[in-house]
């Protein structure tokens, strides 16, 4: 297919997004967040401040969590970007997504995509994180709904599933302490 004429002054880059090669052109001042949402239609990545303060726009860049509001789109050229849309494994949810859904770790769901990706990066490098490891890995992601506790529990549950364990959510997470 013939490439469209680009508007003057636009940057044109190739990158990999959620495992697929993508080409995109955009004004060069745009952040990766804006390119994902506005030029690639991937609105699963959210924004809470666009100043690098809240963690909501976290995506994985070559496997590392970054704040997409602080990364220029052009800086993603030739690199691998993963967003929440790329987490599910075909028709199956990623274990983190499944655990977050089961335990109500997503309330309003707005911080959820960023937290899922930060958690995925954590489990990639540390399959058996302690509660403190999880707190430190997610300390840059604000959530105003959950008080973080269901998020910790979901990351722990998903980690167990990913290690191949036949884990179930603790009863106290579901019914409270007796």
């Amino acid at each position: 297919m013939a490439r469209r004429a680009e508007p003057p002054g636009h940057a044109h880059i190739s990158l990999e997004v959620n495992g697929e090669p993508v080409e995109v052109s955009f004004p060069p001042h745009k952040t990766l967040l804006e390119v994902l949402r506005e030029d690639l239609g991937l609105t699963g990545t959210k924004h809470g401040c666009e100043l690098g303060e809240c963690g909501t726009c976290t995506v994985l860049l070559d496997g590392q969590p970054v704040l997409s509001c602080l990364v220029l789109g052009v800086a993603a050229a030739g690199r691998k970007v993963k967003t929440v849309e790329g987490m599910a494994r075909g028709p199956e949810l990623h274990p983190l997504q499944r655990a977050f859904a089961d335990l109500g770790a997503a309330q309003c769901g707005y911080c959820t995509p960023g937290i899922l990706l930060a958690a995925e990066a954590l489990l990639e490098r540390n399959p058996r994180p302690t509660r403190q490891d999880i707190k430190e890995a997610l300390a840059g992601n604000l959530c105003r709904c959950t008080g973080y506790i269901k998020i910790y529990e979901a990351v722990e549950l998903a980690a167990a599933w990913m290690r191949g364990e036949d884990a179930a959510p603790p009863e106290e997470s579901i019914y409270g302490r007796r």
């Binding site: 699963g44 949810l93 499944r98 977050f100 859904a101 109500g104 959820t112 995509p113």
Partner: peptide, 13 residues
């Protein structure tokens, strides 16, 4: 205990 009806939409963006 149930998932919320919108839980999957929220964890998949």
């Amino acid at each position: 205990a149930h998932r919320k009806v919108d839980a999957v939409a929220k964890v998949t963006g």
